[in-house]
Amino acid sequence: MSLRSAIASARPTTPAFIAIAVFSVGLGLAGLHAKLSEPAENLRLAANADLVERIGLTDLALFTEARYTRHPSMADLHTAFQDHPASFEHFPSGIFVPPPTGLASGTLSTSIEDLSQ
């Protein structure tokens, strides 16, 4: 039986199960790849940690467009909402930086009880 006729006469589940098996093996290989590259990556991370210590770095150079996204941990208290705690962001990477915690913890009320406090 030729390959073509074998494919033509195969049950519909055969190619579907083969595809699922191929991707399952792929996922397994991805896990294996992650495991095998661990020692080399750990060495690289240790060298980078050493660099952080020697230079005295505090942040990742991932977003270089604005000072408060370049150094989020060192930025002013209102960052990434520099100009006003609830202002819209100027820079695209500002959308990745969450608003400061406790921003919405205050209450705004005009009730007699609240005002008398």
Binding site: E41, L45, A61, L62, T64, E65, F96
Partner: peptide, 17 residues
């Protein structure tokens, strides 16, 4: 991720699942 930044690091991440 780059946004308006001119410099964007060319980095490879440690594979991790």
């Amino acid at each position: 991720l780059k946004g308006w930044a001119v410099i964007y690091p060319d980095f490879a991440l440690a594979p991790y699942i």
